[in-house]
Protein backbone atom coordinates (compact mmCIF):
# COMPACT_ATOMS: atom_id res chain seq x y z
CA UNK A 1 0.00 0.00 0.00
CA UNK A 2 2.75 2.35 1.00
CA UNK A 3 4.73 1.50 -2.13
CA UNK A 4 1.62 1.94 -4.21
CA UNK A 5 0.94 5.45 -2.89
CA UNK A 6 4.51 6.45 -3.58
CA UNK A 7 4.51 4.98 -7.10
CA UNK A 8 1.15 6.58 -7.81
CA UNK A 9 2.47 10.01 -6.80
CA UNK A 10 5.64 9.45 -8.83
CA UNK A 11 3.50 8.59 -11.82
CA UNK A 12 1.37 11.69 -11.28
CA UNK A 13 4.49 13.84 -11.03
CA UNK A 14 5.97 12.37 -14.20
CA UNK A 15 2.66 12.79 -15.99
CA UNK A 16 2.47 16.46 -15.00
CA UNK A 17 6.02 17.02 -16.32
CA UNK A 18 4.94 15.39 -19.56
CA UNK A 19 1.96 17.72 -19.66
CA UNK A 20 4.18 20.82 -19.38
CA UNK A 21 6.14 19.56 -22.38
CA UNK A 22 3.10 18.43 -24.35
CA UNK A 23 1.16 21.65 -23.70
CA UNK A 24 3.67 23.80 -25.59
CA UNK A 25 3.90 21.24 -28.36
CA UNK A 26 0.15 20.95 -28.82
CA UNK A 27 -0.40 24.74 -28.60
CA UNK A 28 2.21 25.35 -31.31
CA UNK A 29 0.74 22.59 -33.40
CA UNK A 30 -2.85 23.64 -32.90
CA UNK A 31 -2.25 27.31 -33.65
CA UNK A 32 0.58 27.39 -36.15
CA UNK A 33 0.20 23.88 -37.63
CA UNK A 34 3.91 23.39 -36.90
CA UNK A 35 5.62 20.16 -35.86
CA UNK A 36 8.48 21.12 -33.59
CA UNK A 37 10.98 18.36 -32.86
CA UNK A 38 13.30 20.91 -31.26
CA UNK A 39 10.85 21.34 -28.38
CA UNK A 40 13.00 18.89 -26.41
CA UNK A 41 15.94 21.24 -26.86
CA UNK A 42 14.13 23.89 -24.80
CA UNK A 43 13.60 21.24 -22.11
CA UNK A 44 17.36 20.65 -22.11
CA UNK A 45 18.22 24.36 -22.22
CA UNK A 46 15.93 25.06 -19.27
CA UNK A 47 17.84 22.50 -17.21
CA UNK A 48 21.28 23.85 -18.17
CA UNK A 49 20.23 27.47 -17.65
CA UNK A 50 18.84 26.66 -14.20
CA UNK A 51 22.00 24.82 -13.14
CA UNK A 52 24.17 27.72 -14.33
CA UNK A 53 22.07 30.56 -12.93
CA UNK A 54 21.55 28.81 -9.59
CA UNK A 55 25.30 28.44 -9.24
CA UNK A 56 25.80 32.09 -10.28
CA UNK A 57 23.16 33.73 -8.11
CA UNK A 58 23.44 31.28 -5.22
CA UNK A 59 19.65 31.17 -5.01
CA UNK A 60 17.47 28.35 -6.32
CA UNK A 61 14.41 30.53 -6.93
CA UNK A 62 16.53 33.23 -8.59
CA UNK A 63 18.13 30.62 -10.83
CA UNK A 64 14.76 29.20 -11.83
CA UNK A 65 13.28 32.60 -12.67
CA UNK A 66 16.31 33.61 -14.74
CA UNK A 67 16.30 30.22 -16.49
CA UNK A 68 12.63 30.59 -17.43
CA UNK A 69 13.23 34.08 -18.79
CA UNK A 70 16.24 32.86 -20.77
CA UNK A 71 14.33 29.91 -22.28
CA UNK A 72 11.47 32.25 -23.19
CA UNK A 73 13.92 34.56 -24.98
CA UNK A 74 15.66 31.69 -26.82
CA UNK A 75 12.27 30.36 -27.88
CA UNK A 76 11.15 33.71 -29.22
CA UNK A 77 14.47 34.16 -31.03
CA UNK A 78 14.15 30.74 -32.66
CA UNK A 79 10.63 31.64 -33.78
CA UNK A 80 11.73 34.94 -35.32
CA UNK A 81 14.84 33.54 -37.01
CA UNK A 82 13.67 30.16 -38.24
CA UNK A 83 10.13 29.02 -37.47
CA UNK A 84 8.40 32.04 -38.98
CA UNK A 85 9.57 30.97 -42.43
CA UNK A 86 8.26 27.44 -42.03
CA UNK A 87 4.55 27.93 -41.26
CA UNK A 88 3.49 27.70 -44.88
CA UNK A 89 5.59 24.64 -45.58
CA UNK A 90 4.53 21.02 -45.25
CA UNK A 91 5.17 18.85 -42.21
CA UNK A 92 8.17 17.08 -43.69
CA UNK A 93 9.94 20.44 -43.94
CA UNK A 94 9.13 21.14 -40.29
CA UNK A 95 10.57 17.79 -39.27
CA UNK A 96 13.78 18.33 -41.22
CA UNK A 97 14.36 21.91 -40.16
CA UNK A 98 13.71 21.24 -36.48
CA UNK A 99 15.86 18.10 -36.68
CA UNK A 100 18.65 20.43 -37.80
CA UNK A 101 17.90 22.66 -34.81
CA UNK A 102 18.23 19.69 -32.42
CA UNK A 103 21.68 18.88 -33.79
CA UNK A 104 22.62 22.55 -33.45
CA UNK A 105 21.42 22.91 -29.86
CA UNK A 106 22.94 19.61 -28.69
CA UNK A 107 26.29 20.58 -30.13
CA UNK A 108 26.01 24.13 -28.77
CA UNK A 109 25.41 22.78 -25.26
CA UNK A 110 28.40 20.45 -25.65
CA UNK A 111 30.51 23.41 -26.75
CA UNK A 112 29.44 25.71 -23.90
CA UNK A 113 28.92 23.34 -20.96
CA UNK A 114 31.08 20.39 -22.03
CA UNK A 115 30.07 16.76 -22.58
CA UNK A 116 29.60 15.88 -18.89
CA UNK A 117 26.18 16.50 -17.32
CA UNK A 118 25.44 19.18 -14.75
CA UNK A 119 23.84 18.86 -11.35
CA UNK A 120 21.16 21.18 -10.10
CA UNK A 121 21.44 21.22 -6.32
CA UNK A 122 18.28 21.70 -4.30
CA UNK A 123 18.06 24.11 -1.37
CA UNK A 124 17.67 22.39 1.99
CA UNK A 125 14.00 23.41 2.39
CA UNK A 126 13.13 21.39 -0.74
CA UNK A 127 15.48 18.52 -0.07
CA UNK A 128 13.41 16.97 2.73
CA UNK A 129 10.47 14.68 2.96
CA UNK A 130 6.99 15.30 4.33
CA UNK A 131 4.43 13.03 5.91
CA UNK A 132 1.53 12.97 3.44
CA UNK A 133 -0.44 10.19 5.12
CA UNK A 134 0.09 8.77 8.59
CA UNK A 135 3.45 6.98 8.41
CA UNK A 136 3.88 7.67 4.69
CA UNK A 137 6.84 9.88 3.84
CA UNK A 138 7.15 11.50 0.43
CA UNK A 139 9.82 13.69 -1.14
CA UNK A 140 9.08 17.38 -0.56
CA UNK A 141 10.62 18.22 -3.93
CA UNK A 142 8.49 15.77 -5.92
CA UNK A 143 5.43 17.05 -4.09
CA UNK A 144 6.29 20.63 -4.99
CA UNK A 145 6.69 19.59 -8.65
CA UNK A 146 3.13 18.28 -8.53
CA UNK A 147 1.89 21.53 -6.97
CA UNK A 148 3.76 23.79 -9.41
CA UNK A 149 2.74 21.81 -12.47
CA UNK A 150 -0.90 21.69 -11.38
CA UNK A 151 -0.84 25.46 -10.79
CA UNK A 152 0.63 26.00 -14.25
CA UNK A 153 -2.00 23.73 -15.79
CA UNK A 154 -4.81 25.69 -14.11
CA UNK A 155 -3.25 29.03 -15.05
CA UNK A 156 -2.88 27.86 -18.65
CA UNK A 157 -6.51 26.79 -18.73
CA UNK A 158 -7.67 30.14 -17.31
CA UNK A 159 -5.47 32.12 -19.73
CA UNK A 160 -6.62 30.20 -22.78
CA UNK A 161 -10.31 30.07 -21.83
CA UNK A 162 -10.90 33.28 -19.88
CA UNK A 163 -8.63 36.06 -21.13
CA UNK A 164 -8.43 38.19 -24.26
CA UNK A 165 -5.06 36.74 -25.26
CA UNK A 166 -6.50 33.27 -24.86
CA UNK A 167 -9.43 34.22 -27.03
CA UNK A 168 -7.03 35.42 -29.73
CA UNK A 169 -5.08 32.16 -29.44
CA UNK A 170 -8.22 30.09 -29.87
CA UNK A 171 -9.39 32.30 -32.72
CA UNK A 172 -6.00 31.98 -34.39
CA UNK A 173 -6.23 28.22 -34.13
CA UNK A 174 -9.53 28.04 -35.95
CA UNK A 175 -9.01 30.69 -38.63
CA UNK A 176 -5.76 32.56 -38.93
CA UNK A 177 -6.63 34.56 -42.06
CA UNK A 178 -9.74 35.94 -40.42
CA UNK A 179 -8.03 36.97 -37.22
CA UNK A 180 -5.26 38.84 -39.04
CA UNK A 181 -7.85 40.47 -41.29
CA UNK A 182 -9.48 41.78 -38.12
CA UNK A 183 -6.34 43.71 -37.30
CA UNK A 184 -4.65 41.42 -34.80
CA UNK A 185 -0.86 41.30 -34.98
CA UNK A 186 -0.72 37.59 -35.65
CA UNK A 187 3.07 37.51 -35.99
CA UNK A 188 3.54 38.88 -32.50
CA UNK A 189 0.97 36.44 -31.14
CA UNK A 190 2.80 33.51 -32.74
CA UNK A 191 6.16 34.63 -31.35
CA UNK A 192 4.61 34.96 -27.92
CA UNK A 193 2.91 31.55 -27.97
CA UNK A 194 6.08 29.87 -29.22
CA UNK A 195 8.13 31.54 -26.48
CA UNK A 196 5.67 30.51 -23.77
CA UNK A 197 5.70 26.94 -25.07
CA UNK A 198 9.50 26.97 -24.89
CA UNK A 199 9.43 28.33 -21.34
CA UNK A 200 6.98 25.59 -20.26
CA UNK A 201 9.34 22.97 -21.70
CA UNK A 202 12.21 24.70 -19.92
CA UNK A 203 10.27 24.56 -16.64
CA UNK A 204 9.72 20.81 -17.06
CA UNK A 205 13.39 20.34 -17.89
CA UNK A 206 14.74 22.24 -14.90
CA UNK A 207 12.38 20.48 -12.50
CA UNK A 208 13.47 17.10 -13.84
CA UNK A 209 17.16 18.14 -13.75
CA UNK A 210 17.13 18.26 -9.96
CA UNK A 211 15.98 14.62 -9.82
CA UNK A 212 18.23 13.30 -12.60
CA UNK A 213 20.95 15.52 -14.06
CA UNK A 214 21.06 18.03 -16.88
CA UNK A 215 22.59 16.22 -19.82
CA UNK A 216 22.84 16.46 -23.60
CA UNK A 217 19.99 14.77 -25.42
CA UNK A 218 17.83 14.62 -22.27
CA UNK A 219 14.99 16.27 -24.14
CA UNK A 220 14.70 13.77 -26.93
CA UNK A 221 13.48 10.65 -25.19
CA UNK A 222 10.89 12.53 -23.22
CA UNK A 223 9.88 14.42 -26.36
CA UNK A 224 8.88 11.14 -27.96
CA UNK A 225 6.77 10.40 -24.88
CA UNK A 226 5.22 13.84 -25.27
CA UNK A 227 4.36 12.89 -28.85
CA UNK A 228 2.65 9.77 -27.56
CA UNK A 229 0.71 11.98 -25.15
CA UNK A 230 -0.41 14.26 -27.97
CA UNK A 231 -1.38 11.34 -30.19
CA UNK A 232 -3.47 9.81 -27.41
CA UNK A 233 -4.96 13.13 -26.34
CA UNK A 234 -5.67 14.44 -29.82
CA UNK A 235 -3.47 17.02 -31.53
CA UNK A 236 -4.22 20.63 -30.62
CA UNK A 237 -6.27 19.87 -27.52
CA UNK A 238 -4.89 21.08 -24.18
CA UNK A 239 -7.51 19.21 -22.20
CA UNK A 240 -6.66 16.02 -24.11
CA UNK A 241 -2.95 16.60 -23.50
CA UNK A 242 -3.58 16.97 -19.77
CA UNK A 243 -5.60 13.79 -19.38
CA UNK A 244 -3.33 11.78 -21.68
CA UNK A 245 -0.18 13.03 -19.92
CA UNK A 246 -1.42 11.91 -16.50
CA UNK A 247 -2.54 8.63 -18.03
CA UNK A 248 0.82 7.97 -19.72
CA UNK A 249 2.78 9.04 -16.63
CA UNK A 250 0.82 6.68 -14.41
CA UNK A 251 0.93 3.72 -16.79
CA UNK A 252 4.65 4.10 -17.37
CA UNK A 253 5.65 4.49 -13.71
CA UNK A 254 3.20 2.08 -12.15
CA UNK A 255 3.83 -0.44 -14.95
CA UNK A 256 7.59 -0.36 -14.38
CA UNK A 257 7.07 -0.80 -10.64
CA UNK A 258 4.54 -3.60 -10.60
CA UNK A 259 4.77 -5.45 -13.91
CA UNK A 260 7.72 -7.66 -12.81
CA UNK A 261 5.70 -8.91 -9.82
CA UNK A 262 2.56 -9.39 -11.90
CA UNK A 263 4.46 -11.38 -14.51
CA UNK A 264 5.94 -13.63 -11.82
CA UNK A 265 2.41 -14.80 -11.07
CA UNK A 266 1.99 -16.06 -14.61
CA UNK A 267 5.51 -16.96 -15.72
CA UNK A 268 8.59 -18.60 -14.28
CA UNK A 269 10.83 -16.12 -12.37
CA UNK A 270 13.55 -16.34 -15.04
CA UNK A 271 11.11 -15.67 -17.88
CA UNK A 272 9.51 -12.85 -15.91
CA UNK A 273 12.89 -11.25 -15.28
CA UNK A 274 13.62 -11.16 -19.03
CA UNK A 275 10.16 -10.17 -20.20
CA UNK A 276 9.38 -7.49 -17.61
CA UNK A 277 11.83 -4.74 -18.66
CA UNK A 278 10.97 -5.16 -22.34
CA UNK A 279 7.25 -5.26 -21.69
CA UNK A 280 7.17 -2.31 -19.30
CA UNK A 281 9.04 -0.06 -21.74
CA UNK A 282 6.69 -1.19 -24.51
CA UNK A 283 3.57 -0.73 -22.39
CA UNK A 284 2.63 2.84 -23.28
CA UNK A 285 3.27 2.25 -26.96
CA UNK A 286 0.96 -0.74 -26.84
CA UNK A 287 -1.68 1.39 -25.13
CA UNK A 288 -1.19 4.03 -27.82
CA UNK A 289 -1.65 1.42 -30.54
CA UNK A 290 -4.86 0.17 -28.97
CA UNK A 291 -6.27 3.70 -28.58
CA UNK A 292 -5.43 4.43 -32.20
CA UNK A 293 -7.29 1.39 -33.41
CA UNK A 294 -10.39 2.60 -31.57
CA UNK A 295 -10.00 6.37 -32.12
CA UNK A 296 -7.53 7.26 -34.92
CA UNK A 297 -7.69 11.00 -34.10
CA UNK A 298 -7.02 10.58 -30.38
CA UNK A 299 -9.35 10.67 -27.42
CA UNK A 300 -10.18 14.38 -27.53
CA UNK A 301 -9.61 15.72 -31.04
CA UNK A 302 -9.60 19.53 -31.02
CA UNK A 303 -12.66 21.08 -32.69
CA UNK A 304 -11.90 22.12 -36.26
CA UNK A 305 -8.63 20.18 -36.35
CA UNK A 306 -7.47 19.01 -39.72
Amino acid sequence: MLLFVEQFLNGLQFGLLLFLLAAGLTLVFGIMDLVNLAHGSFYMLGAYFAATFTALTGSFIGGVVLALAATLLVGMAVEVIAMRRLYRRDHLDHVLATFGLILFFNELVRLIWGPAGMNLTLPSWLNTSVEILPDVQYSMYRLSIIVVALAVAIALYLIVMRTRVGMLIRAGASNREMISALGINIKLLYTFVFGVGAALAGLAGLMQAAILTAQIGMGENILILAFVVIIIGGIGSIRGAFIAAIFVGLIDTVGRAFLPDLLKLALSPAAAATAAPALSSMLIYLVMAIILVVRPAGLFPAPGSR
Partner: peptide, 10 residues
Protein backbone atom coordinates in the same frame (compact mmCIF):
# COMPACT_ATOMS: atom_id res chain seq x y z
CA UNK B 1 30.66 19.64 -36.77
CA UNK B 2 26.94 19.35 -36.07
CA UNK B 3 26.89 23.00 -35.09
CA UNK B 4 27.49 23.69 -38.79
CA UNK B 5 25.46 20.77 -40.11
CA UNK B 6 22.28 21.65 -38.19
CA UNK B 7 21.86 25.17 -39.58
CA UNK B 8 22.94 23.87 -43.00
CA UNK B 9 20.01 21.48 -42.88
CA UNK B 10 17.71 24.39 -42.01
Amino acid sequence: WQIIFGPLLL
